[in-house]
């Protein structure tokens, strides 16, 4: 079979023909008085988040509980590492997938010697990563309004480390906690200046499904557990 012809011009032609007649906006009465909505307005309508860092953290903590993410406040990278060591021993982990970052590299020397490290930075064996017990990543940002962790390839060891192992550990600093998605997108835009990573993902709680009788089950495909280690 030959590749079918790309129908670009035909599709665009039909669109332009169709759009020759303008369509009114329904519900004009509901339009905001300030005319076209801008992203700055979103904050006035979405669920409120307090203005101070403490209020952001309080909301993030509350949502983490609802979402069944485990949020652990740590005073140093060494403390965070000790929590990883504890989880490793409690759950008899053999292999931990991880990537080189400022925080992960500071934690790694404190891990038990018998916990095998699978570094993913230079590429990795898919089967080996699938068989690892947990994945440790850093993240771009945390989002207070939704209880989310924002990961990208460069910040979090690629596309897969944060979703293939059955337990995802995230280590972050408190300064990475932003108010809402609007602030998160603005921050990403400022950082990457148009050269975005190939994936930006907002992770909100452990993997979940409600497909059977709308009853919540965690760990459908991705991590059954999500642990967020928050440093000052």
């Amino acid at each position: 079979m030959n590749a079918p012809q790309n129908d670009r011009d035909a599709v665009l032609g039909r669109i332009r023909e169709a759009l020759r007649i303008p369509a009114p906006l329904h519900h004009p009465a509901e339009r905001s008085a300030g005319g076209e909505p801008t992203t700055a307005h979103f904050r006035e309508w979405l669920p409120p988040v307090g203005p101070t860092p403490d209020e952001r953290l309080a909301l993030f903590t509350q949502l983490s509980e609802t979402l069944r993410s485990e949020l652990i406040l740590c005073d140093s990278a060494a403390t965070a590492a000790s929590h990883v060591a504890r989880l490793a021993s409690e759950n008899s982990w053999k292999t931990l997938g991880l990537h080189r970052g400022e925080l992960t590299s500071a934690m790694e020397p404190h891990f038990p010697a018998d916990l095998e490290r699978l570094w993913v930075d230079e590429g990795y064996d898919k089967d080996a990563l699938e068989a690892s017990d947990a994945g440790l990543t850093e993240c771009e940002l945390l989002v207070a309004q939704t209880g989310s962790v924002c990961v990208t390839g460069p910040s979090s060891g690629g596309r897969v480390l944060s979703v293939l192992p059955p337990h995802h550990l995230v280590v972050a600093r408190r300064s990475q906690l932003v108010t809402d998605l609007t602030e998160a997108y603005a921050s990403l835009a400022a950082k990457y200046r148009g050269q975005y990573p190939s994936m930006i993902s907002f992770i909100t709680g452990p993997s979940r499904t409600g497909d059977i009788e709308r009853i919540l089950v965690l760990g459908a495909h991705g991590p059954k557990r999500l642990t967020i280690l928050l440093l000052p």
């Binding site: 669920p47 949502l63 990537h99 993913v120 930075d121 230079e122 590429g123 990795y124 309004q145 939704t146 209880g147 989310s148 390839g153 460069p154 060891g157 690629g158 596309r159 897969v160 979703v163 975005y196 990573p197 190939s198 994936m199 930006i200 993902s201 907002f202 992770i203 909100t204 709680g205 452990p206 993997s207 979940r208 991705g222």
Partner: peptide, 21 residues
């Protein structure tokens, strides 16, 4: 839900310098 479990934006295949994708 406040936000669905995973909301991911994909801009292209694996980019230079990325380890997977």
């Amino acid at each position: 839900q406040h936000l669905t479990g995973y909301n991911s934006m994909y801009g292209g295949p694996r980019q230079p310098g990325e380890n997977d994708g």
